[in-house]
Design a binder for these strands. Structure first.
Lengths: 229, 229
DNA sequence: ACCTGAACACCGTTCAAGT
DNA sequence: ACCTGAACACCGTTCAAGT
């Protein structure tokens, strides 16, 4: 005979295993993917592991530590390629787009990245790849070093924007929200807001990908300029 | 004779006034300045106004709406100056530094800015000033329009970093944290992390202000390059 | 019309106690 | 040694009821 507990564990989740940080991380990521960061509570993660919230504290100091560990796991899914001087610019775009994609696949994790300055093992692999690629592109040491902070920051911010729309704020899609903001710009009094009114179209043009690519290219051009100085 | 209530209100807070969005915003900002964003709970703000949490919902739909209103109030403290083509670069730096300072004076509010895409009235004034200054500097319309998103984003991210240190994560100061990270970089195996090991010094050099100024200048140079294309 | 008491359905974290 | 029941001190939000 199969008990209720057995039936539940084979249907909803992996069979009950001994607790461990890894088990908590995986349970946390399941909750994150399903219901977003807010749903990642100690109680919910514990329930996912068929135990009580207190048990989680055996392997993890608190909720923030669990979230940080989850973040490093997500960063670990990003694939890096060896730096190639011929394609360095494209490689930077690919790496940053992969970061955004990995974070968008786990809605809310981007907030954890901003609140904590990622220094986990996998973040270091990403930083090493970024640094190698920037240097391959001829960017000088100091600009390259600082860019390792700035560029992932743009990726994180872009991912957070993605979260906003995937959460369907006010039930709007991204397009609807942009259109609404554009209408607001156009209806602004032109005497007090001449520039916003004039550039209403430019302000709302382009999707997230296009704007992100533009920001990256601006930054890279600026880094190259700084490298020549 | 002065009652306990009178004495308390003159010592601790403004005299009890009728409820209003403004009263809630001001109470919220007092809590924010004193104890950070986490402490801004409906219950705490209500207590600050000598009432119960349910009363707040008469003027505000939920906690997020209150936080967004608080953010717009903070943005309103930023002073803008008319665009001057002779000093446009300096003006961009001043405006963005003022944004960071305003947010750092209210620890945690930067998170609200990222989670919500500020579109309040005061945010529009800031955007108009930014746009005017960028155009005065010769930046073309489309780059200027997109820069209105990207540049404040850098400011917000910088403010969040400031929050991390003002919170004294692990009781460390900013300098101690940078030194710890630097030590970690230097001790990395040079065969797997040749670039990080080589640039450990560059990675940790410069304080927040210097890095922020560098990021702004890179971005502006990139925007100028894009404007010429 | 404006406000609120009381309740509902949750939180993170601790710690004494169990196995 | 590893795990957990129960409790502590909180949350946001709703809604019927009061003034």
């Amino acid at each position: 005979v199969s008990t209720d507990a057995q039936r539940r564990s084979t249907r909803d989740r992996p069979a009950k295993r001994p607790l461990s940080v890894d088990a908590e991380i995986e349970a946390g990521l399941r909750v994150l993917k399903a219901d977003g960061l807010e749903a990642v509570t100690m109680r919910r993660v514990a329930a996912e592991l068929d135990t009580g919230p207190a048990s989680l504290y055996v392997y993890v100091a608190n909720r923030n530590e669990l979230c940080t560990a989850m973040l490093d796991r997500v960063i670990g899914t990003i694939e890096v390629e060896p730096a190639d001087p011929e394609r360095w610019r494209e490689q930077v775009h690919r790496l940053l787009n992969a970061m955004v994609a990995a974070m968008n696949a786990h809605p809310g994790i981007a907030h954890v990245a901003l609140a904590n300055i990622p220094t986990g093992g996998n973040a270091l692999v990403g930083a090493e790849a970024m640094l190698a690629t920037l240097r391959a592109g001829g960017i000088a040491d100091q600009p390259a070093a600082w860019a390792c902070d700035i560029l992932p920051l743009l990726a994180t911010a872009t991912a957070i924007e993605g979260d906003i729309y995937s959460a369907r704020v006010n039930g709007e899609t991204e397009e609807e929200a942009i259109e609404r903001v554009g209408a607001a710009f156009r209806s602004l009094p032109a005497d007090r807001f001449p520039n916003l009114a004039a550039l209403a179209g430019a302000m709302t043009s382009g999707d997230g990908d296009e704007r992100f690519a533009f920001a990256i290219d601006c930054m890279l051009d600026g880094l190259l300029a700084a490298s020549r100085r």
